[in-house]
């Protein structure tokens, strides 16, 4: 009986921390984006939707490559972080956070956008006639009525961040405790022919993903409409 090594445990904890931070930030950033996409009639809707959905179709290494350049000393993000005195982001935990935000964005935006669209105008109009201002309407009507969309977005964003590999490798490398997440750790085990360790991590990931999907689908059954779209948002639309 082998179980997890200390390095494995560190990787698991790091992964969970990364996914939690990213999910939280994505809900904050993705909500206004999804809201805008759900309501706008602007010609920009097409291009912005495409940008948000790009990570669904691009090889993660391509995203990682561009992010590496952008966050590097000469890139736009790199310049910004340097001028703020934080240094550069690649090969740091926060570099992974930024990369994951880009990479997992569509998995949060699409379920939210779908449930905002399913909401329609009427509940908002009703709230306005009951003297609720724009912010009041969003908090007291949109959020509770889109609850299933938010839950779906959080689960998908979290799970997808846990599962990323290519982007992490490009941006973060393999630094234990900072950027060595489960998927990278697993790759190391296999390279080192430590198949026993690899089995433990893989089985854990498999179990985790299965449980997440069971949760998502059983939730779907209870609240059918908006989540239907949420669960299928892995496909490009």
């Amino acid at each position: 009986m082998m179980g997890f090594s200390d390095a494995d445990v560190t990787a698991i904890l790091l992964t969970l921390r990364l996914a939690s931070v990213v999910t939280l930030l994505l809900l904050m950033l993705g909500t206004p984006v999804a809201w805008w996409l759900a309501r706008t009639h602007s010609w920009l809707k097409g291009p912005i939707s495409a940008v948000v959905a790009l990570p669904l179709v691009l090889p993660p290494t391509v995203i990682g490559f561009y992010l590496l350049l952008a966050m590097g000393p000469n890139g736009a993000i790199g310049q910004l972080t340097q001028s703020l005195g934080i240094g550069t982001l690649p090969f740091t935990f926060w570099g992974l956070v930024v990369a994951s935000l880009v990479y997992s964005m569509p998995f949060v935006v699409q379920p939210l956008q779908n449930s905002f669209e399913a909401l329609g105008e009427r509940p908002l109009e009703v709230a306005a006639t009951l003297r609720a201002g724009p912010w009041d309407r969003f908090v007291t009507v949109v959020v509770p009525l889109s609850r299933s969309g938010f839950i779906s977005a959080a689960i998908l964003g979290f799970a997808h961040t846990v599962g990323e590999f290519g982007v992490v490798l490009m941006i973060g490398g393999n630094i234990p405790g900072a950027t060595q997440v489960i998927s990278v750790q697993l790759y190391d085990h296999v390279e080192a022919l430590e198949y026993g360790q690899a089995h433990w991590l893989s089985a854990a990931m498999l179990l985790f993903s299965f449980v997440v999907l069971v949760l998502l689908y059983s939730f779907n059954r209870r609240y059918p409409n908006p989540l239907r779209h949420g669960a299928s948002s892995g496909s490009v639309q």
Partner: peptide, 12 residues
Amino acid sequence: LPTHRRPLGVVF
């Protein structure tokens, strides 16, 4: 005046 500033009630 936006809707939420108008002292009205609406039944749809």
